[in-house]
Amino acid sequence: MLTRIVRMTFQPEKVADFLAIFQDSENKIRNMPGCRHLELWQDADLPHVYCTHSRWDSATDLNNYRHSALFGQVWPATKALFAAPPLAFSVYPAGQDSSSPALPTT
């Protein structure tokens, strides 16, 4: 299981526009093959900063979404609202990446 987190800083006056985009697309994203979870987080101290947290069966599933027509609509519209570049990263639970052996335990 791959977890993807994308931290996005929006122009404060564009937050409502982003929320409308997210609301319109969240169920479509959740229905993409391999997507097991999607939620939106708002920063506790900076109300114009949001993170998407999603879980995917594999990196291939995430990349298939990232190359889909849906992503091609959602990401450019979202990106136009940024006040700063996004920070995105993908992680596996420690020792769970199928391409590497489990970490030793002591």
Score class of each variant (00 low, 15 high):
residue 68 S to F: 06
residue 99 S to R: 14
residue 79 K to C: 10
residue 77 A to L: 09
residue 101 P to G: 14
residue 95 G to N: 08
residue 82 F to E: 05
residue 54 S to M: 11
residue 60 T to W: 03
residue 60 T to K: 10
residue 60 T to C: 06
residue 88 A to K: 03
residue 64 N to P: 02
residue 79 K to I: 09
residue 82 F to Q: 06
residue 73 Q to W: 07
residue 91 V to L: 11
residue 95 G to T: 10
residue 65 Y to W: 12
residue 73 Q to N: 12
residue 68 S to I: 00
residue 102 A to W: 01
residue 89 F to C: 06
residue 67 H to Q: 11
residue 68 S to Y: 02
residue 82 F to N: 06
residue 52 T to H: 08
residue 86 P to I: 09
residue 77 A to K: 06
residue 95 G to R: 03
residue 101 P to W: 14
residue 96 Q to A: 15
residue 61 D to I: 01
residue 84 A to N: 07
residue 78 T to L: 07
residue 93 P to F: 11
residue 87 L to D: 14
residue 101 P to N: 15
residue 65 Y to L: 04
residue 83 A to L: 11
residue 96 Q to R: 14
residue 65 Y to P: 09
residue 73 Q to V: 15
residue 87 L to T: 14
residue 54 S to C: 05
residue 74 V to L: 12
residue 73 Q to T: 13
residue 67 H to C: 06
residue 60 T to G: 04
residue 75 W to M: 08
residue 81 L to G: 07
residue 100 S to W: 12
residue 99 S to W: 10
residue 57 D to G: 00
residue 75 W to T: 01
residue 102 A to S: 10
residue 100 S to A: 15
residue 96 Q to D: 13
residue 81 L to Q: 09
residue 102 A to N: 05
residue 79 K to Q: 14
residue 69 A to T: 12
residue 76 P to G: 03
residue 65 Y to R: 07
residue 51 C to P: 00
residue 93 P to M: 13
residue 66 R to V: 03
residue 61 D to V: 02
residue 96 Q to T: 13
residue 101 P to C: 11
residue 69 A to G: 06
residue 79 K to E: 13
residue 99 S to G: 14
residue 56 W to A: 00
residue 91 V to N: 08
residue 71 F to C: 05
residue 64 N to R: 02
residue 83 A to Y: 07
residue 62 L to K: 11
residue 71 F to P: 02
residue 64 N to G: 00
residue 66 R to G: 02
residue 54 S to W: 01
residue 99 S to C: 14
residue 92 Y to I: 05
residue 62 L to T: 08
residue 102 A to I: 03
residue 67 H to A: 11
residue 62 L to P: 09
residue 84 A to Q: 11
residue 88 A to I: 02
residue 66 R to I: 01
residue 102 A to H: 03
residue 67 H to R: 11
residue 59 A to K: 05
residue 77 A to I: 10
residue 57 D to K: 03
residue 92 Y to L: 12
residue 70 L to K: 04
residue 55 R to G: 02
residue 51 C to Q: 04
residue 91 V to M: 09
residue 66 R to F: 00
residue 57 D to W: 00
residue 95 G to F: 04
residue 58 S to E: 04
residue 57 D to E: 11
residue 72 G to H: 05
residue 78 T to G: 06
residue 94 A to I: 15
residue 56 W to R: 01
residue 86 P to R: 08
residue 78 T to H: 07
residue 93 P to V: 13
residue 98 S to G: 10
residue 64 N to W: 02
residue 71 F to M: 00
residue 65 Y to F: 15
residue 62 L to D: 05
residue 54 S to Y: 09
residue 73 Q to Y: 07
residue 91 V to H: 08
residue 87 L to A: 15
residue 86 P to D: 08
residue 92 Y to R: 11
residue 59 A to Q: 12
residue 62 L to Q: 11
residue 72 G to N: 08
residue 65 Y to G: 08
residue 52 T to F: 01
residue 60 T to H: 09
residue 52 T to Q: 01
residue 101 P to F: 15
residue 70 L to E: 02
